[in-house]
Structure formats: C-alpha cells, structure tokens
C-alpha cells in the first residue's frame, strides 16, 4: 500500500500505513480519533444465529483491541442463492443483537451472492486521539493479561469432524460470542501499554507480533493459560485445523518451549482462534489493581506471563 499511499500525505492517519495493527486510526479533532476496521468469515458453527453473533463480536473486537468504543457498523455478507430466507435472517439477527449489546447501530451494509456464506461487519469506533492501544509499547517487566481461553480452532474443527457434540461445544460458542468490551475498558482504565486480540495467528503468533513491534520478548506460563473445555483432550488426538500447522511453521522460529511442554501442547498455543480474547500488558503495580477489579466485577481475566528483554517468546 505504501507504494501507492505515502504516509506523509495523510498526517491525520495515526495508524494504518505503518506496522500492521488491528484497526486504522484517523484523527478527527484535538481529542478524538476515529477507529475503523472490517472482518468477515465463513460459518464456523452450525447455528446461524450463533454464527452471526460470533462474526459481529469478532469484528467489534478489533475496535476494542485499540482501546476504543465502537458506535456504528455496516453488514458485509455473501449469501448462496439457495440458502433459506429464515437462515439468512437468523445470521443477520445474531449480528444485530450482538451489535446492540455493544451499543452499536448497524446502519446498512452490502450483500452479494456467493457459493459459501460469509458474514462480518465494517465497524467504526471512537478513541482518544492521544490514548489508544497499538501492538507496540510493551515494556520489560509488564504483566501479560488474556481475557478469553484458547482452543476455539480445535473445538470448531472437532465440531466439523463430529468428534464432539453441540452440548460439549456450547461453552466455547458462548465465549466466542462474548464481547471484549469489559477487558478493553479495564485495559484502558489501568493504563495498558499495548493490546491486540487473539485471532487466526494464534496466541503465540499474535504475541510475537506484539513483541517484535515493541522490541521486547514475552514469557508465558503454560499452566497459567486457560483452555476451553475438551481442547486439551482433542489436542492429544491432533484435532488441529490446518491453520495451526501454518502458524507453527511461520512463528515457530521465534518461540522457545521448555522441554517438558509436549508437542500437542505446543500446537495448542499455535491454534488459530476465532473471536479470541484481548492480550494486553500492564505495569506490575497496575496489574494488581486491575486483577482485583476484574475479580470483584466478575470480568474474566488471566495473568498469563510477563514482558522480558529476551526478544523472543518463551513458554515455561
């Protein structure tokens, strides 16, 4: 893009043409910046309502990952002509009700015909012009927080392969539908230095993006990382989606695992996530206060590691 768009021509574009991030940020006033993102994907669960809700939560997550509040969205969809109208309306209803929960209005959109359904949102949010979260800015000694468990790629693969029942996947589906709003607000309140949301590149892939953007290393404690029910059992059967192998190949060189962490557990940390949690870093003193508030308010949050000087991802 930089061959066509020169950053110097767009002084109000605060995030976009430089290092890749979760959303573009455009300064619209002294205090305010507009945050813009889009995301859509093919069905990952059988229920059309859940699919719509997960796709919407996933699109809005990029706004939350920037420490911004979404307010406006448009539907983006591809629908096979033979899909029954009641299925189509369930997908849109799932997306719309999730948007409403987030305080976002869906003001239109665009639908095309395609062989396989696709759905997602274009989402807009507002951030403070000087205070939003990018992938860079983590400092050595900061504590790492994660707001959702890991393993949704394994679970959705298992659903497709009929290796688990709908009932066994219900908890994971509920997590994928969950907004990252509370985690984003906590991160902002306690002065997070950097954040991203965990999606297709897996926990370790996105962690590496943050580490390299910040010029630091990260150390994860395997036992502190939360997993969805059945994910570890399915990992032992190597029920991984193809993207997990791509992630392991692409990011493996930047990750050092302790000897006792098995191949299956390593692969689980490369599992591509759908609508995953926020990963953010806080200084130690703020981390204690943040964890306390999360506990008192019932906001799910796990301390999964810390920022180091090593310039590499370690899992111990």
């Amino acid at each position: 893009m930089q061959q066509i768009f020169s950053p110097a021509d767009y002084p109000d574009l605060l995030v976009g043409l430089g290092a890749p991030d979760d959303a573009a940020v455009w300064k619209v006033g002294e205090q305010r910046a507009l945050v813009v993102t889009t995301d859509f994907f093919t069905p990952i669960v059988d229920d059309p309502y859940d699919y719509g809700a997960i796709a919407a939560a996933n699109s809005l997550s990029d706004i939350y990952a920037m420490g911004a509040e979404p307010f406006l969205a448009l539907n983006v969809a591809a629908i096979p002509p033979q899909l029954p109208p009641e299925i189509i309306s369930e997908i849109f209803r799932g997306g719309a009700e999730k948007a409403k929960e987030a305080g976002v209005v869906i003001a239109g959109g665009h639908t095309v015909q395609d062989k396989e359904p696709k759905y997602g949102l274009v989402a807009l949010g507002f951030a403070h012009a000087d205070r939003f979260l990018t992938k860079s800015g983590m400092r050595t000694g900061d504590i790492l927080f994660l707001s959702k468990p890991i393993g949704s790629g394994v679970i959705t693969s298992a659903i497709k392969a009929d290796k688990i029942t709908h009932e066994e996947a219900i908890e994971t589906i509920a997590w994928m539908k969950r907004l990252n709003r509370d985690a984003s607000r906590l991160a902002m309140k306690y002065g997070a230095c950097a954040a991203t949301d965990i999606t297709g590149f897996s926990l370790l892939g996105h962690a590496w993006e943050m580490a390299s953007a910040s010029g630091v290393g990260l150390q994860f404690h395997y036992d502190a990382i939360p997993f969805y029910p059945h994910a570890e059992k399915l990992a032992l059967e190597w029920c991984f989606p193809g993207g997990g192998f791509d992630n392991a190949e692409h990011f493996g060189a930047y990750v050092k695992f302790a000897a006792e962490i098995s191949q299956e557990r390593q692969m689980l940390l490369f599992d591509p996530q759908t609508s995953g949690g926020l990963l953010f870093a806080l200084p130690v003193d703020k981390a204690i206060l943040c964890q306390q508030e999360a506990l008192l308010s019932g906001i799910p949050l796990w301390q999964v590691g810390k920022v180091t000087q090593s310039k590499l991802i370690e899992v111990v």
């Binding site: 497709k160 392969a161 059967e237 190597w238 029920c239 989606p241």
Partner: peptide
C-alpha cells in the same frame, strides 16, 4: 476426508 480427520487417523 477433510481436515482434521486425515491428521487424526494418521496420528492414531
């Protein structure tokens, strides 16, 4: 068969 089924069978 589509993934992960081939991987699961090979792993077994």
């Amino acid at each position: 068969l589509s993934c992960p089924q081939p991987v699961i069978l090979a792993q077994k």
